[in-house]
Design a protein around this nucleic acid. Structure first.
Lengths: 116, 116
DNA sequence: CTGATGTGCAACTGCAGAGTTGCACTTCGG
DNA sequence: CCGAAGTGCAACTCTGCAGTTGCACATCAG
């Protein structure tokens, strides 16, 4: 499978970025957190945990995962830590998908020419 | 967090689909498999495992995960089982991302109006 | 038929993620 | 200064996934 193969010619974001990014998005709780932060604005871990079924610590871990993926950023305000969404990495995900789908299209095109 | 909250008004694909989809894409080996199937065309698990460091069984499991996410389909040819890419689900992922990024844009717009 | 090739199934190990609990530390309000 | 609110850190359990191995079953070529 030629792992560590080449990444021949394109601004591939070190693959690891895609791992951590897709991995962060794979959890429904994390997507909910992102959506809530988007609709309700920046919030603290305690606030996010308040209504829900999760412990504050559990929420904190999710926030750290999301931040590790570059999807969140935090800033202190006194004793509070507010998290906000930084959706730039999503462009990375879309790039991979578009590139992949593009290869598929090209393949389809080739097949169409041959089999027609 | 109000899990099972609302999914207010949009053809959201049951959330579970996003789980399994993003989860499938989160593994670099699986992405490599998809890319290879796209560039080299349909192949069997044995063929995919041949050059690489993974066992055939490991590859089979990855193929099953990808197929479970709707990204692959298989067809028998005698004693062989060939897998091919079916990238339609990728549109689902892009939809979620675009919707999410869209919310962010709207939020930005709101903030711009208020703070300006 | 027989061996070789290709799959399928099941059990097992190892490890990382999700979530919890308990406690210490910092900061704000009165 | 003192209590309350908010965070941070660490240990612990539990479950699921990745990967392996071993073996049985199906299929093709000679």
């Amino acid at each position: 499978m030629s792992r560590t193969a080449a990444t021949p010619a394109s601004p591939q974001p070190t693959a690891g970025a895609l791992d951590v990014l897709f991995g962060a998005l794979a959890d429904p709780t994390r997507r909910q957190i992102v959506e809530r932060l988007l609709t309700s604005g920046p919030a603290t871990a305690t606030a996010l945990a308040d209504g829900g079924p999760l412990t504050r610590q559990a929420v904190v871990k999710h926030l750290q995962v999301l931040e590790g993926a570059g999807l969140l950023a935090h800033e202190r305000h006194g004793r509070e830590v507010r998290y906000r969404v930084t959706p730039e990495p999503l462009a990375t995900a879309v790039s991979w998908i578009v590139d992949t789908a593009g290869q598929w299209d090209r393949r389809l095109e080739r097949l169409r020419k041959v089999t027609k």
